[in-house]
């Protein structure tokens, strides 16, 4: 059964911005990666899922409920990390988290666990915090009530590499606990490590929708190099993270997301 269903969603902001005839589904307990460059329409799609904006054309549902009309019911089991964190500047983060838990009425069962996980001490005004700190507060606020569905809009932006890793671990665990996750990103790596399926959006249109494995295979190019002797081959394999087979070493290069986009751009025949 699909938890998130987007069908024929269109929202035209003019100048080729927005989303156009977008359809995709995310199954229950599935982690879905939503990739695309800045301004591709990822956030617009998520806003529709959150019930912030009403679809002009098409429908958007979560667990069979309409995301616009029944948003308050959907929100009971939803955790959201906004693409741009803007919380109440006048509050300290502890106050904000306490306020959010009471305001939502959905509790804060996992607040302490989340704070520990991200080495966060909820002191100090939100106003004075760095982007990374605010992002962490956003993560805690999204996960503390242990929701069933998670909509994560570029959740690792502003986090240092260590915290990015911890976040990816968290998402992986949540997926195992049966949560439905839609995570947007412009980085292939983090999506690749967490998500089972990936959709690539470009200029508001879905240009690829496949399993992570299939996409990886498509975009990884292996090269086999023959070297003079086994010793050099072994050193080479070590340096370039390749697979050694006698004097032959197979190394693979991964295309950058940019290159992948260009691939899809070419395939679709430059329809812009």
């Amino acid at each position: 059964m699909s938890a998130i269903v987007i069908s024929n969603l269109t929202r035209d902001y003019g100048e080729n911005r927005g989303v156009f005839d977008l359809s995709l589904t995310v199954g229950k307990s599935e982690a879905f990666g939503f990739l695309g460059p800045n301004g591709a329409g990822k956030t617009t799609t998520i806003r529709h899922l959150m019930g912030f904006i009403k679809p002009k054309v098409g429908t958007v549902t979560i667990d069979g409920r309409d995301c616009w009309r029944e948003r308050d019911i959907i929100q009971k089991q939803l955790g959201y990390i906004p693409g741009e964190i803007a919380f109440f500047d006048d509050m300290s983060s502890a106050e904000f988290l306490r306020f959010t838990a009471k305001y939502r009425g959905t509790g804060n069962a996992r607040e302490k666990e989340m704070l520990d996980r991200f080495d966060l001490s909820p002191k100090g005004k939100i106003k004075k915090m760095s982007k990374g700190m605010k992002q962490k507060i956003g993560i805690v606020a999204a996960f503390m009530h242990d929701p069933e569905v998670l909509l994560l809009d570029e959740p690792t932006s502003g986090l240092d590499p260590l915290m990015q890793c911890r976040f990816i671990d968290l998402v992986t665990e949540e997926k195992k606990r049966g949560k439905t996750i839609l995570m947007s990103s412009h980085m292939f790596d983090e999506v690749e490590r967490t998500c089972h399926r990936i959709g690539i959006i470009r200029a508001g249109r879905l240009v690829a929708l496949d399993t992570t494995d299939a996409l990886r295979d498509k975009h990884v190019r292996p090269y086999t190099v023959r070297l003079d002797d086994e010793q050099t081959a072994s050193a080479f394999a070590k340096d370039f993270d390749g697979r050694q087979d006698g004097v032959a070493v197979t190394v693979s290069t991964r295309q950058t997301l940019e290159q992948i986009f260009l691939d899809y751009y070419d395939v679709s025949g430059g329809d812009r």
Binding site: A86, F87, T106
Partner: peptide, 14 residues
Amino acid sequence: DRGSIVALVSAPIK
């Protein structure tokens, strides 16, 4: 204007 309305609308409140 500041976008902090997101903290109010991303909750099970009409």
